[in-house]
Amino acid sequence: MITIFYFAGLKEAAGTAHEQADLAGRTVNELLEWVGKRYPQMPLDAVRVAINEEYALAEDVLQPGDTAALIPPVSGG
């Protein structure tokens, strides 16, 4: 299992801040496809993914126990 975090508008679209899913062994790209099917209204165009608090590449593979955070465009400052 991996844990998925949603923030800002994505959290509102998902209706939850985090959930668990059986996506170990899948890539970051496959994770985004899974999320897009689950929440068709969720705006994923400019979303980056962080695995265990580090920005990840599209081909990076999720390991069991990983935390994957969906990072919409940031607007701090």
Binding site: F7, A8, G9, E12, P43, D45, A46, A50, A69, I71, P72, P73, V74, S75, G76, G77
Partner: peptide, 23 residues
Amino acid sequence: IKELVPIWKKEIWENGTEWIGDQ
């Protein structure tokens, strides 16, 4: 900070709200 740091701003106006940075 504006490129990299996972922080999000929601503006609250008299007639609505918006997460800045989203589409």
